[in-house]
């Protein structure tokens, strides 16, 4: 039973890491896109005409595809005034409760986001730009990131219930 959990947990951690790695690639592409725009406008009197739109999508992609890995690595900030003072037992209970709240809140958002993505897809809504991007694509990326986050919270809280260690918050610098 526990080994099955550990295997599934490893897969979920892997999913989160891959999503974040994709976000790093997006970060690099965003940088290159902006640099291209600067060079085109300054030296060739022209424009990509998609920079504003795609850099925006890029930012949203980074935020939500990075979210799951951020939870895993303890990079997602929380106020630790209460948590930091609890003993190991109560702390574990509190962590499970916060995970439960996070799961419910995010599941609520995910439900309505998926309705939106479905409608964007069936309507064929596009952006009114030169790229005429189908809106469902960037929205679906955000939705994917939210699902990855849900997956992490689910396995983390399950792990807490069967005695797996707490996530360590990102370390203080020395």
């Amino acid at each position: 039973m526990h080994t099955l959990y550990d295997r599934l947990d490893r897969i979920s951690a892997w999913v989160a890491r891959v999503a974040a790695q994709f976000a790093v690639v997006v970060l690099a592409c965003t940088t290159l896109l902006i640099l291209t725009e600067i060079v085109l406008r300054s030296f060739f009197a022209t424009s990509t005409n998609i920079t504003e739109e795609y850099v925006g999508y890029g930012l949203g992609t980074m935020v939500f595809l990075g979210l799951g890995h951020a939870v895993r690595t303890g990079s997602l900030v929380r106020v630790d005034i209460v948590l930091g003072r609890l003993g190991p037992g109560p702390r574990r209970v509190m962590e499970v409760l916060t995970c439960l709240v996070a799961f419910v809140v995010m599941a609520f958002v995910v439900y309505y986001m998926s309705i939106r993505v479905g409608r964007d897809f069936s309507r064929g809504t596009i952006s009114t730009t030169l790229a005429a991007t189908p809106i469902w694509i960037p929205n679906a990326v955000v939705l994917t990131g939210m699902l990855v986050f849900l997956l992490q919270v689910f396995f983390y809280s399950l792990g807490l219930l069967i005695g797996r260690p707490l996530i360590k918050e990102a370390e203080s610098i020395e």
Binding site: V24, L59, H69, A70, L76
Partner: peptide, 10 residues
Amino acid sequence: AVLTTAMIGS
């Protein structure tokens, strides 16, 4: 940078 952005953006 991505992890910090995820935190700030969310």
